[in-house]
């Protein structure tokens, strides 16, 4: 039986400031597959993740998530199938515990509140001391914030994770812990973005994006 792809992008074209940033990009991720997008700065790696979330609307092309076409009507239900961790996550203000709990107050996530009981488990797994939960998020280092963003995304229990340079601020041990976790989660589809694919040793495939932006107005 042919499985419905977790993510299917066909002939994606994105323009930025009138210049073509992404040109006829296609990609297909099977459920459970781990893929890393790589390429030089400005090749549109992060933009592809933002297209999947409906934060960038492409000029042309189609995006299917779990078999459903992404449009302005389906974006709201498709977003709750995805979890996104940004490179420098702007997690808002407040204590770490509050920051992690906040998305569980949204109607779409309210049934997942029991997952919050696993916070200490994930803190331990990603080498974060539990006492950080009482600290203000602003006092955390970049690597700690990245892991808090990652833990929140995992607790949201989505099947598809979009990771934007999430290990950029992590030390070697923390990178290994993150890689080990994703390697163990066969049910999770992960599309990650990294300037260095070495950061994602758990990936099944690496796709290098060409650099189109400097080719002028198209």
């Amino acid at each position: 039986m042919i499985q419905t792809p977790a993510i299917e992008i066909a002939n994606l074209m994105v323009k930025f400031d009138g210049k073509r940033l992404i040109k006829a990009f296609s990609m297909c991720l099977s459920p459970g597959e781990k893929v890393t997008l790589t390429g030089r700065s400005g090749s549109g790696k992060s933009t592809i993740l933002r297209c999947l979330l409906g934060f960038v609307v492409p000029e042309a092309g189609t995006i299917h998530i779990a078999g459903k076409l992404l449009t302005n009507e389906t974006v709201w239900e498709l977003r709750i199938r995805l979890a996104y961790v940004a490179q420098e996550p702007d997690l808002g203000t407040g204590r770490v515990q509050e920051i992690i709990e906040r998305p569980f107050t949204y109607r779409a996530n309210s049934r997942l509140r029991e997952n919050l009981a696993r916070i200490p488990e994930f803190f331990e797994r990603f080498l974060l001391p539990v006492h950080l939960l009482d600290k203000e998020i602003a006092t955390l280092s970049g690597g700690e914030k990245q892991r808090v963003g990652l833990i929140t995304a995992i607790l949201l229990d989505r099947r598809i994770l979009l990771l934007d340079e999430v290990s950029s601020a992590l030390d070697k041990t923390a990178k290994l812990a993150v890689a080990e976790f994703f390697r163990s989660r066969k049910d999770m589809t992960v599309l990650s973005v990294s300037h260095s694919p070495k950061n994602f040793s758990f990936s099944d495939r690496v796709i290098e994006l060409p650099y189109n932006y400097s080719k002028g107005k198209q």
């Binding site: 979330l53 934060f55 702007d90 808002g92 109607r107 949201l156």
Partner: peptide, 22 residues
């Protein structure tokens, strides 16, 4: 000014009404 935080909220599954609440 807080576009990143706002989009982060949407990415976490907030409806527009929930994202604008704060």
């Amino acid at each position: 000014k807080s576009q990143k935080a706002f989009q982060h909220t949407l990415a976490q599954g907030a409806r527009l009404q929930e994202a604008i609440r704060p």
